[in-house]
Nucleic acid binder design. Structure first.
Lengths: 196, 196
DNA sequence: GTTAGCATGTAAGGAGTTACATGATTTT
DNA sequence: AAAATCATGTAACTCCTTACATGCTAAC
């Protein structure tokens, strides 16, 4: 999950760890708390020793006036871009849980339509299963549950209903070749998928 | 999280592991996937060696006809009940994230009103922080984000709005001494908190 | 008698967190 | 010159999962 997100952000532009965390916090903010440094920096090292990212050469056009010795700017390599596409397109079961789905969705603009549909439909299946479970509990065991447990199940069921509707809209939009946005009057152009 | 949930369920009735998992799946279904056995059984052992639960004595009133040798029925001990109350009342930061809040909420009927309010308000603060983050991202960086990332943030913001409203209602109900349910016409009596 | 479901467990490991430790740079 | 914030890193640990291994019991 972190690998995918880091490669995705470095795909857009080279950055050092601290900045990466800020971008990560914004990008993943809808479904996850901020990533800790204790997780980020070891991951960067692992990606680097795997050849997926490298330290940016200091022979840049404009060397900074102050030496900035502490900062290490990373950029993605060709292998990193390949790996990114692999991770993005591969949809195992963990792709459909909350953080997994969120990260994939956040990088949908780099995916092809078939992959997007596969992931949206997998997510819908997953949420529908959860919804079924909640419905069963509410239908079969409602008398045995206390008021709070009941309220929690109702709220969960509600959230499932909303998400299924949201996914249905997104799936319909994908199938008609559109891009997400408010209503059908959106004019924001969609980034085309990268062509390596 | 698992400790709390297991103690809470065994507080209601003695059970063996397999059954416990089923109950857990129903009780936590609104915010979590099923617990794996690889997590459940080691936890039961740990709780047992900590003296919080014990194997139920086989000298029960009605010994089953078939010997059922494989099954181990656990029940909660007095220390276990104490620990359960401690875990329920203690509200650290992890109490306000998704699974933490969910478990606490699921056992609200065993908590006093002050604790319930503390936890509901902590959760609201947490969600409001997330909402702020999303609002900032949408306000400051919307042009730089692709259509999918944008849609994800909007959906997340929406979910935050809903949850804050839900929490506000629950908090208001708590303060007026009521019990949760649909509208103000609810007549379901609330389990009184246990008095050890 | 064999398949399905009940029931219990272990070993290895994944994916992160917290707490700690350090130092550079910028602002007041 | 102090305080804030930028920036990087390590060690220990938490909490859970997957994959595996085993055997009993009920149903067909």
């Amino acid at each position: 999950m972190l690998d995918l997100a880091i490669l995705g952000l470095l795909h857009e532009s080279a950055m050092h760890g601290y900045e990466l965390r800020k971008q990560l916090t914004a990008k993943l903010g809808a479904f996850r708390a901020a990533i800790s440094y204790g997780s980020l920096y070891p991951t960067l090292r692992r990606l680097q020793s795997g050849g997926l990212i490298t330290e940016e050469s200091s022979t840049t056009a404009v060397p900074p006036l102050t030496s900035r010795r502490g900062r290490v700017v990373y950029k993605i390599t060709a292998e990193g871009k390949e790996r990114f596409q692999e991770l993005l397109a591969h949809a195992g079961p963990e792709t459909f849980d909350d953080p997994g789905f969120g990260v994939h969705f956040a990088f949908f603009s780099r995916t092809d339509q078939a992959t997007r549909l596969r992931i949206l439909e997998g997510r819908r299946r997953r949420i529908e299963e959860r919804r079924e479970g909640l419905r069963n509990t509410l239908a079969r065991a409602a008398e045995r549950l206390d008021a709070y447990t009941l309220e929690l199940q109702r709220h969960g069921l509600d959230a499932c209903d909303r998400e299924v509707r949201w996914l249905d809209e997104l799936i319909a939009t994908e199938r008609s070749g559109g891009q997400p946005g408010r209503g059908t009057t959106t004019s924001t152009p969609l980034d085309p998928p990268e062509r390596p």
